[in-house]
């Protein structure tokens, strides 16, 4: 952005051009993050819940149960880091609900911001917001029994954050569907159910075979499997990757449809 000097620049000959990158910029990103961090309910949901669940689901008591390159504590820890990142990315996408309810989307439409740059801002914010719960859960785990190889810490952390991006279009979709501030109160329980059937709360091995087969088709399953694989040390199958890609495509398509419909006055 160049600054106009109103004492020197002539009003009519003032240079006018379009912003680079469709308006995407770091100040916008920074203010977007500040906004999300100011939402206290959001922070409790995103950071406190998965940390509390770590203790509730026995993360602190499973130290001596060895699993692959780590232990059962690290299994619980990674699963809940994925859960926290899922909430963070969904909430970031769903923040569009508040923006629409407030007419902010309309305000942005009369600025040079391009829709693609706006989506890129949402994805970048989601990535950054995903870091908070993953770090919180990993620090909690590290101090309370979770053990695994160094490489597993690093890789599973990045997979949890990156994989959770699947839920950005999910949040956007819900945000366009329900333009109100209470959208996360509905999505919170939905995410808990998805986490449960996707094997983030209870290991898949504890479930019966019918349930296990259904679980493989739910959206949280693939990310959990891939995020845990460096710790488990057995790699991941193609079905998990397909699960992530297909759900990403479904959510993105739904969000894009509603985004295009969203041209009215809200």
């Amino acid at each position: 952005m160049t600054q106009i000097d109103s004492t020197k620049d002539n009003f009519y000959t003032q240079k006018r051009s379009m912003p680079p990158l469709g308006g995407y910029n770091l100040t916008f990103l920074k203010i977007e993050i500040l906004r999300l961090l100011r939402n206290r309910r959001n922070i409790i949901f995103t950071i406190i819940t998965p940390v509390v669940f770590y203790f509730m689901f026995g993360g602190g008591k499973s130290i001596h149960q060895k699993m692959g390159n780590g232990n059962a504590s690290s299994y619980v820890m990674i699963s809940l880091a994925v859960y926290g990142a899922m909430i963070a990315t969904t909430a970031t996408g769903a923040s569009v609900a508040v923006e629409r309810a407030a007419g902010w989307s309309r305000q942005l439409r009369i600025t040079p911001l391009r829709p693609g740059a706006y989506i890129a801002i949402k994805i970048s914010s989601a990535l950054i917001m995903g870091v908070f719960p993953v770090v919180a859960v990993f620090v909690t785990g590290a101090l309370n029994g979770a053990q695994m190889t160094f490489a597993a810490w690093i890789i599973s952390g990045f997979v949890a954050i990156g994989g959770a991006l699947v839920f950005v279009p999910f949040g956007l979709f819900a945000g366009y569907l329900m333009p109100s501030e209470s959208v996360m109160q509905i999505l919170g329980p939905v995410l808990a159910i998805l986490a449960f059937v996707g094997g983030l709360f209870v290991p898949m091995a504890f479930l019966n075979s019918t349930f296990r087969n259904i679980a493989k088709f739910t959206p949280a399953y693939g990310i959990g499997e891939i995020a845990r694989s460096p710790m488990m040390g057995h790699g991941f199958d193609i079905a998990s990757v397909a699960n992530v890609i297909i759900w990403m495509a479904i959510f993105a398509f739904g969000a894009a449809m509603l985004f295009r419909r969203d041209t009215g006055r809200v």
């Binding site: 912003p19 910029n25 500040l34 939402n39 407030a102 305000q107």
Partner: peptide, 22 residues
């Protein structure tokens, strides 16, 4: 409408100002 109540006045102006090339 068109404003976010959780932002301050100056933050709102700064944010929108970054969207204009000049």
């Amino acid at each position: 409408g068109g404003l976010l109540k959780e932002l301050s006045v100056v933050e709102t102006v700064r944010l929108i100002s970054t969207l204009f090339a000049q």
